[in-house]
Nucleic acid binder design. Sequence first.
DNA 1: CAGCATCCTTTATGATACTG
DNA 2: CAGTATCATAAAGGATGCTG
Lengths: 125, 125
Amino acid sequence: MNNNIGLLPNYVDGLKFHCGMDVAMHHLGGKWKTVVLWYLIENKKRFNEIKKNIPNITEKMLTIQLKSLEKDGIIKKEVFNIKPPLKVEYSLTDFGKTLIPLLESLVDWGHFVVKEKSYVMHTKK
Amino acid sequence: MNNNIGLLPNYVDGLKFHCGMDVAMHHLGGKWKTVVLWYLIENKKRFNEIKKNIPNITEKMLTIQLKSLEKDGIIKKEVFNIKPPLKVEYSLTDFGKTLIPLLESLVDWGHFVVKEKSYVMHTKK
DNA sequence: CAGCATCCTTTATGATACTG
DNA sequence: CAGTATCATAAAGGATGCTG
C-alpha cells in the first residue's frame, strides 16, 4: 500500500504534504469546517443562516472557516449589496461539491458511532 | 436535512455533540489520527513500524494518538513481553474497521486534490 | 447584515533528553 | 523496543465590543 505522493513531499499552496491524508485533513481539519460544509450541501446560505444552523459557533470562528474554505476553492462568496444591510451568500464550488460523498460518509459514521457508543454505555452500566 | 442528533445535544463519554459531524471529527480530528489509522488498515504494526511509516511524527505525538485511538475503541494494543526489549502491536478493532471505507475515501480525495491543485497551478502561472 | 479587532484561554504540536 | 518527562511554541478556539 503506497500512500506516499511520489517520492518526495508534495507542495500545494506552499504547504508540504507527505500523503493524501495530509492533504485531505488540511482542507477538512478543525472543529468546524466539515460542519459548515454540511450545511452548505443543501443550498447556498447567508452568514447568519449558517450561524443559526450551528449552535455554539462564534462569528469569529465562522468567519475564519468561511475564509479558509473560500481560499481553498471549496466554497464561493457572493455579495449582493454594497450598502448595509449586506446580503452575502455562500455556496459550494464545483470543486467543493466533490466533497459531498465524503461528507455524507462522515455524518453517517458519526451517527453510527452515537448508536454504537450508546449501546456500549447502556449495557455496561 | 436534519443533521441534529435528536432534539438535545448528545453525550458520548462525557463529551457533548450536536451533530454526527461533531462525533466523527472528534474521533478523527487532528493532524495525525487519520494517517496513523491508514497505516494500520493493512495489518497490525509495532510502534516503531508506524513511526517509520510516518515522516515527521514524533514519539510523543504517536504515543498520544495511539492512546486516544485506543481509548475510543478504534485500535487495540497487545503487549507480548514484560521485559525489554518490549514487543507491542497495534491493530484496528472491529469498531475501528468500520472506518476503513471512510479512510479510503479521504485518501482518494486527497490524491484527487493534489492532481486538481497542480493542474490549476500549472495553467494559471 | 456581515463581519472585524482585540484580548484571552485552551489544545495541539514539537524538540530533546531520559527510562523500564 | 516502546515509550515518559519536560520545556517550549504554535494553532485553535472563545468572549466581547465595535463598524461599514
